[in-house]
């Protein structure tokens, strides 16, 4: 009884702590919000299981450890219990299927179909930098090539991800999204940024000697700032300046 109460308290404390720990970088997209919610559900489902396992171990060590004089004693010859075994097969199965089902719901939310208005940007990885192409649908003229990433707030952005040499991974932790950039194919992800600011873009797949430093930035700006940045870049490149080098956000 006391032991069960201790376990319940441990579970409660665990769940409280799981909310106090600062697990993630800032949430800067709708996807990040959904994924973080999924994570908290997973943690809350896991804590009772872990506490259960540890409690049984600690309780057994406490209650059933060999005392002096029991050196030759054996435990009771219990070989099993079919009902218990069915129980601990069925319950985890249901729990796991429930969790994976919920993860599909979140996945669907995160990867929702194409909205009416969407900004498309091509991200290209090469050893050891990212470059971006803003297509005519964004620039209203020729495609714009830049080594800087600007995305508009509260608007769906669709990345076409490519690689020039080896595999890289296009990861923006603040958005909780990544996908490999693979030579020969184009991969994608879709994000709706929800927070202004500058966040790291990280190559998350070993791509050679410079991999550790293949980091840059994404700037989430208002839609107006986004369009004026694009327009500025366009006129700069039209003026013959090398595309965007030297300018900073």
């Amino acid at each position: 009884m006391v032991a069960a109460a201790c376990a319940a308290i441990a579970i409660a404390i665990g769940i409280v702590i799981s909310y106090l720990i600062h697990w993630f970088p800032v949430q800067a997209s709708t996807q990040a919000k959904n994924t973080d919610r999924l994570y908290h559900v997973l943690v809350i489902a896991s804590i009772p299981i872990f506490v259960l396992v540890v409690s049984v171990i600690l309780y057994s060590v406490w209650q059933f450890r060999m005392r002096p004089g029991e050196e030759l004693k054996d435990g009771p010859p219990i070989h099993g219990n079919t009902r218990l075994e069915v129980f601990w097969t069925a319950i985890p199965t249901v729990l796991l299927l429930g969790l994976v089902g919920y993860s599909f719901v979140v996945l669907k939310e995160n990867e929702q179909g194409r909205p009416a208005k969407e900004v498309q940007i091509q991200a290209t990885g090469e050893q050891f930098a990212w470059s971006y192409t803003y297509p005519p649908s964004v620039t209203g003229g020729a495609p714009l090539k830049s080594d800087q990433l600007y995305v508009p707030l509260d608007q769906s952005v669709y990345f076409n991800i490519r690689a020039k040499d080896v595999i890289h991974a296009f990861w923006i932790p603040a958005f909780r999204l990544q996908e490999d950039a693979v030579p020969g194919i184009t991969t994608h992800w879709r994000v709706t940024p929800t927070r202004l600011g500058t966040y790291p873009v990280v190559c998350n797949l070993l791509c050679g000697l410079g991999h550790s430093l293949m980091r840059s930035k994404v700037h989430v700006v208002t839609q107006q700032q986004f369009h004026s940045w694009v327009a500025g870049q366009m006129s700069a490149s039209a003026g013959g300046a090398a595309s965007s080098t030297g300018s900073s956000g």
């Binding site: 994924t35 999924l38 997973l42 969790l99 993860s103 996945l107 909780r176 996908e179 797949l205």
Partner: peptide, 19 residues
Amino acid sequence: GISGVMLAMIPFDIHVSAT
């Protein structure tokens, strides 16, 4: 095992894969 099960959840894995 618990972190393994978490990694089975695709949206979460997308964030932490290869980290």
